[in-house]
Amino acid sequence: MSIDDVTAIASDALFLVIKVSAPILLVSLIVGLLISIFQTVTSIQEQTLTFVPKILAVFLSIIVLGNWMLTQITEFMNRLWSNFSLYTR
């Protein structure tokens, strides 16, 4: 196994982490932004107000996107394990 192989695997793994986590992070960002705008408009200065809507939005997005996320991770692991004999040389 060469350094190029290790670099390619690490690069693919990092890209997978970014690709799988991006939708959840974007949902959290958008909900936080909307709650912040709501707080600014209504002059509510409660810092803990954003936690419950964010948690619910992230939970719902995991329910909706969980199958896709698991499929992406499973395909990556299957690809790694199917090429395992190439990496041991």
Rank of each mutant, 00 (worst) to 15 (best):
T40N: 10
I24W: 02
T74R: 05
T40E: 06
I35S: 00
I73H: 00
V6I: 14
L49E: 06
E75S: 09
S43W: 09
D12L: 05
Q45L: 12
T71N: 03
D5P: 02
M1E: 12
F59D: 00
P53D: 06
S11R: 15
A57V: 07
Q39F: 10
A8I: 07
Q39Y: 08
M1L: 11
G32Q: 05
A57P: 03
I30C: 04
V58P: 01
F76K: 01
L65H: 02
I24K: 00
A8H: 12
R79S: 13
I30L: 09
T7M: 12
L86N: 13
S11L: 13
L33V: 12
T74K: 11
V17T: 15
I55K: 03
F59P: 00
T50G: 05
S61M: 12
T48P: 03
V6S: 12
I63Y: 10
F51V: 14
N83M: 09
I3D: 11
T71F: 01
I73G: 00
I9W: 05
I63F: 09
V64C: 03
L34D: 05
I44L: 14
L16H: 02
I73P: 00
E75F: 07
F51C: 08
S36F: 11
T42C: 09
V52C: 04
G66W: 04
I73Y: 00
F76G: 02
L86T: 13
K19I: 00
N78R: 11
S36L: 11
I3W: 08
I3R: 08
F15N: 10
F76M: 03
I62L: 13
I63P: 02
I30S: 03
V64Q: 08
S2E: 13
I63V: 15
T50V: 15
L16G: 01
I73C: 01
I18E: 04
E46Q: 14
S43F: 11
S43N: 15
Q45G: 14
I3Y: 10
D5R: 15
I35R: 01
A57Y: 05
L16K: 02
V41P: 04
A57T: 03
L16I: 03
N78L: 06
V20C: 03
T48G: 08
I73E: 01
I55T: 10
Q72V: 00
V17L: 15
N67R: 13
L70N: 01
S2G: 14
T88I: 15
R89N: 10
L29R: 05
N83K: 14
S2N: 15
I35C: 02
A8C: 05
M69W: 01
G66C: 07
T74H: 06
D4P: 04
S28G: 13
I3H: 10
Q39H: 10
I9P: 00
I35E: 03
R79L: 06
K54A: 07
V52E: 04
M77E: 09
R89L: 07
V58W: 00
S2Y: 12
L65S: 02
L49R: 08
V27E: 01
T88R: 14
I3P: 03
I18F: 11
S11I: 07
I9Y: 05
W81V: 10
